[in-house]
Amino acid sequence: MPPERGGLSTLQRSQVLPPSLVAPVLLSLAGLGLVLAGPARGAELPATTAAVLAGGCVNCHGPDGRAQGAIPGIRGLDEGYLRARLLAFRDGRDAPGSVMTRLMKGHDTHQIEALAKWFAQGGTQ
């Protein structure tokens, strides 16, 4: 993992992105019942299942992944970075990070990919 992908620098970069520009579009799409994910791949989880999975994350990382305190925000982070971090937590290649290793050990790779995409895309239904 390149050094600039390390936690803080990535988080700081994400905080200067304007997610407010993205959110209304995603919300209105959700209102129409459209699928947010791109072209469906065979292994991809359905959107409602991804939404339920993501529902666990936001209880600590904040609504739609927007930080509410010491636990870092995850909204709008790079999808590849999120996937790599979550897999590293699960596989014990990252520092335990409070509950993250314990939680990720309960997720399969499809679920982790769905979460990475979900929060990379703005974390909103």
Partner: peptide, 23 residues
């Protein structure tokens, strides 16, 4: 340091889940 982090994370959890729940 791990115990201190988890104390801070607890406060952060409370803020996050309450915002998620009551908006």
């Amino acid at each position: 340091a791990f115990r201190a982090d988890e104390a801070a994370y607890g406060a952060s959890w409370y803020a996050a889940i309450c915002t998620d729940t009551w908006g």
